[in-house]
Amino acid sequence: MKKAIIYGASGLVGSYILEYLLNNPNYEQIIIVVRKDLNIQHPKLKILIGDFHSLDNVVKGIQTDEIYIALGTTQKKTPDKKIYYQIDHDYPVLASKLAKENGAKAVFLVSAVGANPNSSVFYTKTKGEAEEDILNLNFDHTYIFRPSMILGNRKENRPLEKGLKTLFKIINPLFVASLSKYKGIEASDIAKAMVNSADGANERVKILHWKEMIALLK
């Protein structure tokens, strides 16, 4: 029986990760780190209230086998690049480092298609640097999930994103062969792929795009 810790459990992908892990008989305890209580009760669930600045103390001595990271923001929501970088890079890297110190052997990270530490685009560069720094922590298993447009209904209203999601559903069939990684994917499918991949994690490093994620749903 395993223990897992989730960061980003209140978000679109993270809420599905939480749901799937709570319903997975292979796990005895699921720990989530959130800024405020989600008012969810489950015998396997442990809720820790904290953020980037308090994390060191919040997770002190919390032993886990796996860490799931679905943290992220948008430039509209977080226009300050310093805070954006903290959420998309610093927080995932710190959370991973602390989890490894607490015994975690595997990390499952939601990144983004095109993530590249050498990119000239701030968004993809930040994601790429987060990936690189987490890889350098040398977990036994590092699985990086790189979705394109994440489909699903968010709690907050994002009109532009809604329009893009509708467009992606129409143009998805056009992304074939090597372009398949640009296909939009449901948040629930990303989460399911992450949880399913943990059951048979046997590779040290694995990068998963649309095709690899969809294959894990079968």
Rank of each mutant, 00 (worst) to 15 (best):
V121Q: 14
V58F: 00
L94M: 15
H53E: 13
K76L: 15
E129C: 06
T124H: 09
A115W: 10
L109Y: 08
V195C: 04
E28G: 15
V107R: 08
D140Y: 12
A130M: 14
T142F: 07
F139A: 03
V113H: 04
Y84S: 07
A215L: 07
S120I: 09
E156V: 04
A187P: 02
N136R: 14
A193N: 06
Y84A: 05
H53A: 05
D189T: 05
V176F: 15
A106N: 07
L164E: 13
I214Q: 11
L18M: 03
R35N: 10
S197K: 15
K169N: 14
G114W: 07
L109S: 07
S180H: 11
N118F: 15
N26Y: 10
M149L: 14
E101S: 12
I134Y: 02
P117G: 02
N26K: 10
V176Y: 06
N196Q: 15
D65M: 07
L151S: 03
L18F: 01
D133F: 10
E101G: 01
K165T: 07
N116W: 04
L167Q: 03
E129L: 15
F139N: 02
K77L: 07
I185L: 06
N23E: 14
A115C: 14
Y85N: 09
N196F: 13
V121I: 15
A215I: 02
A112N: 11
P25L: 00
I62A: 01
Q75H: 11
E186T: 01
I49L: 13
K44Y: 04
D189Q: 15
A112F: 09
F52I: 10
E203R: 07
M213L: 03
L217T: 08
L55Q: 07
Q29F: 02
E66F: 07
D133T: 09
A193Y: 02
P173H: 03
D189K: 11
S10L: 10
Y7L: 15
K181L: 06
N136V: 06
A130L: 04
H209T: 02
K81C: 06
T142C: 09
L94Y: 10
K97F: 13
D56V: 03
P25H: 02
D51L: 07
N23L: 05
L174R: 09
Q41M: 03
I49M: 04
I190S: 05
